[in-house]
Amino acid sequence: MSKIRITKQFSFEAGHALYGYDGKCKNLHGHSYHLFVTVIGEPIIDHSNVKFGMVIDFGDLKKIVNKEIIDVFDHSMIFNKNTPHLNLAEELKNQEHHIILVDYQPTTEMMVIDFAEKIKKHLPENIALHSLKLSETSTSFAEWYASDNE
């Protein structure tokens, strides 16, 4: 049977600041992120399976990505918890803002690595994460490929 790649696109809004950076992105700012999730597998060939002909039901992939990424990161402010931004994060949390503290500089590159690990853990055994593309603007994005990380 042929291996097939399927892709689902997701969107979320989030803010961040890059502590120690020497450009404008050191300031608090936000993006309309677009995440493209591509998985690879063989279509189900069991005629009695309700998902016959599918690699994975797009709805099942959506549940995984929503639970692990979208529901967590949408309308949040992301800070590296190992920087002085921690004080600001705590102050914002106390004012009931949705704050996420991560162990990395919250660049698009590092976020896509984090997202890959989160998604891979929840995919069915016969489905592999092929790639992720995370865009923070219409012209700027980072890509993660399983083949580059084996």
Score class of each variant (00 low, 15 high):
S2N: 13
S11G: 11
F12S: 09
H16T: 00
Y19W: 15
G20Q: 07
G20K: 09
C25R: 08
N27G: 05
L28Q: 01
L28D: 01
S32F: 09
Y33C: 08
T38F: 07
V39P: 06
V39D: 07
I40N: 03
H47Q: 14
D60P: 00
V65G: 12
V65D: 10
N66T: 03
E68G: 02
E68L: 02
I69S: 12
V72S: 02
M77E: 00
I78V: 05
K81V: 05
N82Y: 14
H85N: 11
L86E: 09
E91K: 04
E91Y: 02
L92H: 04
K93E: 13
N94F: 03
I99Q: 03
D103E: 10
Y104A: 03
Q105M: 12
Q105K: 13
Q105G: 00
T108A: 15
M110D: 11
V112P: 08
F115L: 10
E117N: 14
E117V: 04
E117Y: 10
I119C: 11
K120D: 05
K121D: 06
P124V: 06
I127Y: 02
L129H: 09
H130N: 14
L132P: 12
T137C: 12
S138T: 13
S138K: 14
T139L: 11
T139V: 13
F141D: 09
F141G: 02
W144Y: 15
Y145C: 08
A146F: 12
E150S: 11
